[in-house]
């Protein structure tokens, strides 16, 4: 998922107000921006939505890496449209965060200063065309696991952004699977690329859900506030159960010798990813952390004169009245 390890903020509000707030959430009401909310709720949401938005934007880069090398005109168009959607999703999410009193520029600067995170998954490289398939199939698949329940989150603007995103995103995982299927049933070299992509993206995809949070106080608070809908382990299990049969269909081998169907629990037993690696990636030591942030920094710096120039022009003009149709 795109928001990992979001710490919930402690809240020191009036207990009566807090109880009334919780009652509204329990009753399934949506919280809207101008309404009273605990400071901790607001801050946690800014961090979570901001991280989610950053993930969409940084997430453009590993896939964008192959737009200029897509193997056919149609694949090029599909991939470009898909990565364009990620930009749109980032935009919707930044707007949702902005209703909480933080600006998009502030969030961007926090990302570039390393004060805010994005999903660990985007620090892994896309080395072959099959990786573009794997990203769509596994990474978008994992993201969807998280995003579908988030459509019911308690914060109105976040929920509405997620509804729009889920609607648009429905083609993303399919396009990834479609690429994988072509590769897995293609030439020897293509089959090799497909298996190699699965080998490299399997564990990083499992990491997307974050370490087990069954005992986490932060997660419990976020779940009570309905800004987190499931535990990390629940979502990870669901992802494995859904993905393994798909890999079998493709004739690919999930790189986990201990993967077994467990009839008692009605799901697969599987190996944990290397959590030391995960924490190193979060600290900035993943294969592509430096390149990803440098690319965002360059876009931000190089674009400054455009943003300023357009503002300067607008300031010179009289704001034209806009008539309703």
């Amino acid at each position: 998922m795109y928001a990992q390890m979001v710490k919930s903020e402690a809240t020191q509000d009036d207990p009566e107000k807090l109880a009334a707030f919780q009652a509204r959430i329990d009753a399934g009401e949506k919280i809207e921006p101008k309404e009273w909310m605990p400071e901790g709720y607001r801050k946690t949401l800014i961090r979570q939505i901001g991280q989610h938005a950053h993930s969409e934007i940084v997430g453009q880069l590993p896939e964008g890496n192959w737009i200029t090398r897509a193997p056919s005109l149609e694949r090029k168009a599909i991939l470009l449209a898909k990565v364009q959607d990620e930009a749109g999703h980032g935009l919707y999410l930044y707007c949702a965060a902005e209703t909480l009193g933080v600006s998009r520029d502030e969030l961007t600067e926090a990302l570039l200063a390393g004060k805010m995170k994005y999903s660990s998954i985007f620090n892994y490289p896309t080395l072959t065309w099959a990786d573009i398939g794997a990203v769509g199939w596994l990474v978008d698949g994992a993201a969807i696991m998280n995003q579908v329940p988030l459509q019911r989150t308690s914060f109105g603007p976040y929920s509405r952004a997620m509804i729009r995103i889920c609607k648009e995103e429905s083609f993303h995982q399919r396009q990834g699977f479609d690429i994988m299927r072509k590769m897995a049933t293609g030439t020897k070299a293509q089959r090799h690329m497909a298996q190699d992509a699965l080998n490299r993206f399997w564990y990083p995809s499992l990491m997307m859900f974050g370490p087990s949070d069954a005992d986490s106080v932060h997660s419990a608070q976020s779940i009570r506030w309905k800004i987190k809908m499931n535990t990390n382990d629940e979502l990870r299990q669901k992802f494995v159960d859904q993905t393994v049969p798909q890999a079998e269909y493709l004739g690919l081998t999930v790189p986990d010798p201990d993967l077994r169907w467990n009839a008692d629990k009605g799901g697969y037993d599987f190996s944990e990813p290397d959590w030391d690696e995960f924490f190193e990636v979060l600290k900035g030591n993943g294969p592509c952390n430096t390149e990803r942030l440098a690319a965002r920094q360059k876009a931000w710096d190089d674009g400054a004169w455009v943003r300023d120039g357009l503002m300067a022009h607008a300031a010179k003009q009289h704001s034209a009245p806009v008539a309703a149709e």
């Binding site: 364009q84 707007c95 902005e98 509405r160 022009h313 704001s319």
Partner: peptide, 24 residues
């Protein structure tokens, strides 16, 4: 209401809205 976006003025907001919110 479908969402929001940033733009320096109304005309550009209109074009951005076309590009961002009517892609489908």
């Amino acid at each position: 209401h479908v969402g929001s976006l940033h733009a320096p003025d109304a005309e550009l907001a209109m074009r951005h809205a076309r590009d961002v919110y009517t892609r489908r």
